[in-house]
Design a protein around this nucleic acid. Structure first.
Length: 226
DNA sequence: ACCCAGGGTCATA
DNA sequence: TATGACCATGGG
């Protein structure tokens, strides 16, 4: 379960060549990115897009109206995103914190480590959601780990299947230049690759990561697993 | 009918 | 520290 110093950079290069730039995050403003990061928790993006459109349609895509909105009404608005009661509460908790701190312009000048700690202290914001916000809304060089990233690393034999979030994050970042644009693209590419390949069950040698697999994909053990 | 989605909280051992 | 229940819609 170890990687040579350039494995994750090589994987990035091959994904980028194969799929091209993904242009993440889908969202017009930093605040919309933050809302999307919360709504997409364990949820398909298409459903999140519906929920965001509904918020937009009633002028509720901002901290103040979200806080002013009764829980029942907010839950109904974001219903397509699933877990609507849970997420309505999380959205309001986030907006309360966001507004208390003075909004984007005030938070923008916080050191990254301080900002991450503060985000994690908000109800409903865990490591992945915090890092989504840091990378895609605040443009900080923070690498986002998700279930796809863990599965990819584990199946390539680069990390343990149950590796801790911060452990894998540190291992990957150590192999990459500290570049916001690269981190942005890499996470999006991993999501794209995982969707494209996982259900298709291609032969291992059809996968664009074949040459990166330290096992060489000879045994069939990794058949269709990328 | 079943599985899974760009997770996190809370209670329990 | 580490499991497990729970949250809920929509697409394949």
């Amino acid at each position: 379960m170890s990687s040579t110093p350039a494995d994750y950079l090589l994987i990035y290069q091959r994904l980028l060549v194969h799929y091209g730039p993904q242009g993440w995050w889908p969202g017009e403003t930093p605040f919309e990115v933050m809302v999307g990061a919360i709504l997409t928790q364990n949820t398909a993006w298409q459903n999140v897009a519906r929920a965001i459109a509904r918020l937009q349609a009633v002028g509720c895509l901002d901290a103040k109206p979200i806080l002013a909105c009764p829980h029942e009404d907010l839950a109904e608005l974001i219903r397509p995103a699933g877990y609507f009661n849970v997420k309505a509460r999380r959205l309001q908790a986030y907006c309360a914190w966001y507004q208390d701190q003075g909004g984007f312009d005030a938070l923008q000048v916080w050191p990254t480590a301080t900002l991450r700690q503060a985000l994690l202290a908000v109800h409903g914001i865990g490591p992945e959601t915090a890092d989504d916000i840091l990378l895609y809304a605040f443009a900080r060089p923070i690498f986002v780990i998700d279930a796809y990233t863990k599965r990819l690393g584990a199946r390539l034999g680069l990390c343990a299947a149950k590796v801790k979030y911060e452990t894998l994050q540190a291992d990957i970042v150590r192999q990459l230049p500290l570049d916001v644009a690269l981190f942005n693209e890499y996470h999006a590419l991993i999501v794209r690759h995982s969707k494209a390949v996982c259900r298709a069950k291609p032969l291992c040698t059809d996968c664009c990561l074949w040459a990166c697999c330290p096992h060489g994909c000879r045994s069939g053990l990794h058949y269709g697993l990328y």
